[in-house]
């Protein structure tokens, strides 16, 4: 039988209320922290640096009082695709990668050439995926969406002087994240309704191949519903007097319940994250393996 409780597998976009140090941080610190760590992840292609980064992500999850393994379980539906792309990369990537400047052949079978740089590429890519998934999930798991949007708007505010629509961008970001679980629920509803009418969704190892033909029948009602919802939301916002900040009188039409102010712990966290990410970026070539 299918497990049709989809929300259980959606870890991104869900807020888990906890009394933790990470939850208490200013959203701007978390956003900047994620950006800094994401930069460190992008710059480092060595096993050692990625092991340190992965350990750091696990530590942040534990500090947030959220199980890192639970967050990673959100990646489960993507495993077939990850395995597929990993196999392609292992089988065909032969160039230098990261510290491996001179690739060594591990296996040669006709057109199939497996090198140590190909293996490195796959392992580092998987590690990066896990690290980025943990970081972005933790960002939404520890911060209510409206607070996150407030933080983003505040960070982008200096650009408003140049005509950049920071408020609108923050709103779009909020709505996109807010509706992620809603769409998961709607997908679940639609699938349940179709199964109850006799549609067979397969489960098992190669289920995604067999099910791909049925996805079209699922997407049409889902998109119809999404468009209706978007239209309804836009009308509701207009009815509740929402106007874009750019079009409001003097650009000052909006006030906010959210009052953001840096505290000592925010400065400490930002300094620690900057030092950690900065050190990893600067020493990226110092790791021998």
């Amino acid at each position: 039988m299918q497990d049709l409780d989809f929300l259980r597998h959606i870890t991104l976009g869900q807020y888990f209320p906890r009394r933790s140090v990470v939850h208490a941080l200013d959203p701007r610190v978390k956003l900047l922290g994620v950006a800094l760590l994401a930069a460190a992840i992008s710059f480092n292609a060595s096993y050692a640096a990625n092991a340190i980064l992965l350990a750091a992500c696990f530590a942040i999850a534990l500090l947030s009082l959220i199980s890192p393994l639970y967050i990673l379980s959100g990646l489960r539906p993507a495993i077939p695709f990850i395995v597929f792309f990993a196999l392609i990369q292992v089988a065909f990537f032969t160039g230098p990668y990261g510290p491996t400047l001179h690739p060594r052949q591990l296996l040669h079978l006709g057109a199939l050439v497996v090198t140590d740089s190909g293996v490195r590429l796959v392992l580092i890519s998987v590690a990066r995926l896990l690290e980025l998934w943990l970081l972005t999930s933790l960002l939404t798991n520890t911060t209510p969406i409206s607070t996150l949007a407030g933080g983003l708007e505040s960070l982008l505010r200096p650009l408003s002087a140049l005509g950049f629509p920071s408020h609108d961008l923050a709103l779009v970001f909020t709505l996109a994240l807010r509706f992620l679980p809603v769409f998961a629920l709607e997908l679940e509803d639609t699938m349940k309704a179709q199964i109850s009418r006799g549609v067979q969704w397969n489960s098992g190892r190669l289920a995604f191949v067999a099910n791909s033909r049925r996805i079209a029948a699922l997407l049409v009602p889902l998109f119809v519903d999404a468009l209706r919802r978007a239209e309804g939301l836009a009308t509701a916002m207009e009815a509740r007097c929402y106007v874009s900040r750019r079009r409001s009188i003097g650009g000052k039409g909006h006030t906010s319940l959210l009052y953001l102010r840096f505290q000592a712990r925010d400065w400490v966290a930002l300094a620690a994250l900057s030092a950690f990410a900065g050190a990893l970026i600067l020493c990226r070539n110092a790791f021998p393996w």
């Binding site: 509803d189 349940k192 309704a193 179709q194 199964i195 109850s196 009418r197 549609v199």
Partner: peptide, 17 residues
């Protein structure tokens, strides 16, 4: 079983395919 049971969902539009 599902061929013998009819379930009408609260959101009927989800049921149309």
């Amino acid at each position: 079983l599902r061929l013998r049971v009819g379930l009408l969902f609260q959101r009927a539009e989800a049921q149309l395919l």
